[in-house]
């Protein structure tokens, strides 16, 4: 059982606060969904967690080991994987080569193909020539081969057909069911809430709601209010 605990986290961009005093927990077997309008600070939060940008304050810990001062590579080796937005495949490498780059000791490429069998027949194709959906599958599969404890996924549905998004959501749910702790940042709130366990809603860099996904899914009006402002409800999980 692994557990990511984020406490009082603050992140600045160009000296300006973008994420302020965020608390967040992600546990094995569960998906923590982070929602919010554009500019709410969701992507900055994930970039701070994985070390792409430095944090200004607070702590990030996996199973009690604090990581906030570690470089991104060291955080990866501690079990934190980040699937960035924008489908960051290595364009000049084939599908199989992309997977081999991330292959950590004890991992097997067969696991990636078991999760996404669609990639098997594309194994020798350059990643730049894959479809958007295949590229998203590849970056998720690639992250899986780093043997993560916690998987951060940023906007995986952007620009993809609904049928592909549903396929990806199913795969992410399976990863959580297999024991991963997942933090999912997503614009498609309804779809994310349907596979998630715990929901965080961010507005202007702060968490304005922390509660159960199922409850929030049944209250679209509340979700709407949380996105746009007005009623702030810190609902304990």
């Amino acid at each position: 059982m692994s557990r990511l605990v984020v406490s009082n986290l603050s992140i600045n961009r160009a000296e300006l606060p973008v994420v302020t005093s965020v608390d967040l927990v992600a546990e094995s077997g569960a998906i923590s969904v982070v929602l919010g309008a554009n500019g709410a600070g969701k992507t900055t939060l994930l970039e701070g967690l994985s070390g792409i940008i430095p944090v200004a304050g607070g702590t990030i810990a996996i199973d009690g080991r604090e990581l906030q001062k570690a470089r991104p590579g060291a955080r990866s080796r501690e079990g934190l994987a980040h699937v960035e937005q924008g489908r960051t495949v290595f364009r000049q490498l084939t599908t199989e080569e992309n997977l081999r780059v991330s292959l950590h000791p004890g991992a097997d490429i067969a696991e990636a193909y078991a999760l996404f069998p669609e990639l098997v027949q594309r194994r020798a194709v350059k990643a730049s020539l894959l479809s958007g959906g295949e590229q998203q599958m590849l970056v998720i599969a690639r992250a899986l081969l780093t043997r993560p404890k916690v998987l951060l996924i940023d906007e995986m549905s952007a620009g993809l057909a609904p049928v592909i998004v549903t396929r990806l959501m199913t795969a992410v749910r399976k990863l959580a069911d297999d024991g991963l702790a997942v933090v999912l940042v997503e614009q498609f709130a309804a779809l994310a809430l349907s596979i998630g366990n715990r929901a965080y809603v961010m507005r202007r860099g702060r968490v304005v709601h922390d509660g159960d996904c199922a409850r929030l899914r049944q209250s679209p009006d509340e979700l709407h209010r949380l996105y746009l402002g007005g009623a702030e409800s810190a609902v304990p999980a």
């Binding site: 994985s50 994987a81 081999r100």
Partner: peptide, 24 residues
């Protein structure tokens, strides 16, 4: 070689490579 493969990945997207634990 695996190091060569990692270097090609590094040349393409340094941050993505580092996020996968490649010692950039």
């Amino acid at each position: 070689t695996k190091i060569g493969l990692n270097l090609r990945a590094l040349a393409d997207r340094p941050m993505a490579a580092e996020l996968l634990g490649v010692r950039v």
